[in-house]
């Protein structure tokens, strides 16, 4: 890409999230799934936020979902993103049920954004860091 890109902010990875980030770097999207109440969720929590069970596992998702909501950001709240403006952050409802955040890729697709529009996980890099985005299907 010839376009200027953000300098980025490095995630502060926690014991709960280590697995998730490792899979992101391999272009896989995982969420947690509870064996007791069958709920799936994100972000990572040590116990199920629906029933407090520790009986859960990571499951690999299809990466597919639909646009739940979005905001097109026109102001750089951190200088790291000044070159990206305007950019769109999506809340996506994954097929598996959990909601998750990601950048809309490419940015120009914001003009045709619609609620419930089908999207698929895509991955982009800022420096060495692989990050989650979503693209129209």
């Amino acid at each position: 890409m010839t376009q200027k890109q953000s300098t980025g902010i490095t995630p502060e990875i926690t014991p709960e999230s280590e697995f998730w980030w490792e899979k992101i770097s391999k272009h896989e999207l995982h969420v947690q799934a509870c064996h007791d109440c069958v709920k799936k969720w994100f972000p990572p929590v040590y116990r199920c936020p629906y029933c407090a069970s520790k009986n859960w596992e990571w499951v690999k998702t299809s990466g597919q979902g639909k646009v739940f909501s979005w905001t097109v950001v026109h102001r750089a709240f951190d200088p790291a993103f000044a070159e990206d403006l305007p950019y769109t952050v999506l809340t996506v409802e994954l097929e598996e049920g959990a909601k998750i955040l990601g950048r809309l890729i490419p940015s120009d697709d914001r003009f045709s954004l619609k609620a419930d529009m089908p999207v698929k996980a895509t991955f982009y890099k800022v420096g060495d860091q692989t990050l989650l985005g979503f693209a129209k299907i």
């Binding site: 953000s6 980025g8 902010i9 490095t10 995630p11 502060e12 990875i13 926690t14 999230s17 994100f42 972000p43 905001t71 950001v73 102001r75 709240f77 951190d78 790291a80 993103f81 990206d84 950019y87 952050v89 998750i100 955040l101 990601g102 950048r103 800022v126 860091q129 990050l131 989650l132 985005g133």
Partner: peptide
């Protein structure tokens, strides 16, 4: 959860 917001530029109360 900041680790999932900040790197993609999801920040600022208005957002």
């Amino acid at each position: 959860a900041a680790q999932f917001r900040d790197p993609i530029g999801y920040m600022g109360q208005p957002s």
